[in-house]
Amino acid sequence: MTQVTVWNEFRHERHNDTVAEVYPEGIHTVIADALSEAGFETQTATLDEPDHGLTEAVLDDTDVLTWWGHAAHDEVQDEIVDRVCERVREGMGLLVLHSGHYSKPFTQLMGTSCSLKWREAAETERLWVVEPGHPIADGLDEYIELDNAEMYGERFDIPAPDTLVFTSWFEGGEVFRSGCCYQRGNGRIFYFRPGHETYPIYHDESIQQVLANSVAWAAPGDGPTPKFGNSEPIEVIDESDDRTVH
């Protein structure tokens, strides 16, 4: 069974009454419960735990890591960031949520600023499915409508996605690439825009469906493990040539 680790700063929920009303036990708990109901094994990790809850043992046991961060990106230790990125390149899936676009793991893996326009005005968002044949869009309607959302607008300073699954329109007129798929090494990455902490977005059934679909998509498969370095020939060849500097 796919093992998912749901990571969250868990700061807003403890210090802001509005957020605590929406997510009294933390955003990570709502996401973990939804993914558990979808059939995944889940565990949670938060910023203020030792190693931010992301020890080598935890990451070694993680097939897909989901990441929600907002106010404390700079507090994430570089050693842990490198650990996460190494695991992604080895094959662990990474689901980056909402303001996690500025997280250290995502910016390192993208190699860009990941900057964007934003506005908090509780406006309507429509996420249009622009790649309906993609597994992440399974079971969805043509669009997901959210009554209250924080606006993110283009230009979104990211590399062109390998596949774009969702494009958002906002009541104020902006558009945004809201569902972006990438491959880094052996690992799959999905950036999913919705999820501002003051709105009950992760309680929405369609959003939970996207989370479950994206975890299933990002989970590592059973392909062969490539071997690198000096290699013995498969066929019989003449190996007497000694012109080498190695």
Rank of each mutant, 00 (worst) to 15 (best):
L211E: 00
E79L: 13
H203F: 09
P200H: 01
M110N: 05
G221W: 03
H101F: 11
F176H: 12
E21T: 08
T163D: 13
L127C: 03
F192P: 01
C180W: 04
R184W: 13
Y152K: 08
G185Q: 02
Y152Q: 08
L97R: 01
R193W: 14
C180K: 09
N16R: 09
G172L: 15
F156L: 13
T42R: 00
L116M: 13
R184C: 15
D17I: 09
V84S: 00
S36T: 12
H12Q: 05
S99Q: 06
G139D: 10
D141G: 15
T44M: 05
T124R: 15
V210K: 02
T163I: 11
H28F: 13
T5K: 01
T62W: 11
G100V: 03
G93A: 06
L65H: 03
P50M: 11
E49G: 08
V175E: 14
D17Q: 11
I136A: 01
P159K: 05
S113Y: 10
E120F: 09
I31P: 00
G179K: 00
S99C: 09
D33L: 10
Y199A: 02
A20S: 09
D78I: 13
E49V: 15
S214D: 03
D60M: 12
A122M: 14
G53Y: 04
P135A: 10
L95C: 04
E21R: 11
W68F: 14
G221L: 05
L109E: 02
A149Q: 13
T42K: 01
Q43W: 12
A45V: 06
D63T: 05
K227Y: 03
R243W: 10
T167I: 10
H73S: 08
G153Q: 12
Q77F: 14
A32R: 00
P24R: 11
F106K: 01
C180D: 12
L94E: 03
E9H: 04
W128A: 12
E9S: 06
Y102K: 06
T5I: 06
Q77N: 11
S206K: 01
I80K: 05
P200V: 00
E239T: 04
T2C: 04
L211C: 01
G185T: 12
L65D: 07
D78F: 13
A121S: 10
E21K: 11
W128S: 11
H246Q: 07
S240F: 07
E123G: 09
T66A: 14
E239D: 07
V175A: 14
F176Y: 15
V30Q: 00
N16I: 07
H101G: 08
H15W: 04
I189H: 01
S231I: 14
L116H: 06
C85Q: 01
L95M: 06
P105K: 02
P132Y: 11
D157K: 08
P194L: 05
Y199M: 03
E13K: 06
S115P: 07
H28L: 09
F190P: 02
E49M: 15
Y191A: 09
D138V: 10
F190I: 04
W169E: 13
R89M: 07
E75V: 14
G111W: 04
F170Q: 03
L94H: 03
T163C: 15
G185E: 02
L146M: 04
H70F: 12
A45H: 02
D82S: 08
T46V: 15
E25L: 06
L109P: 00
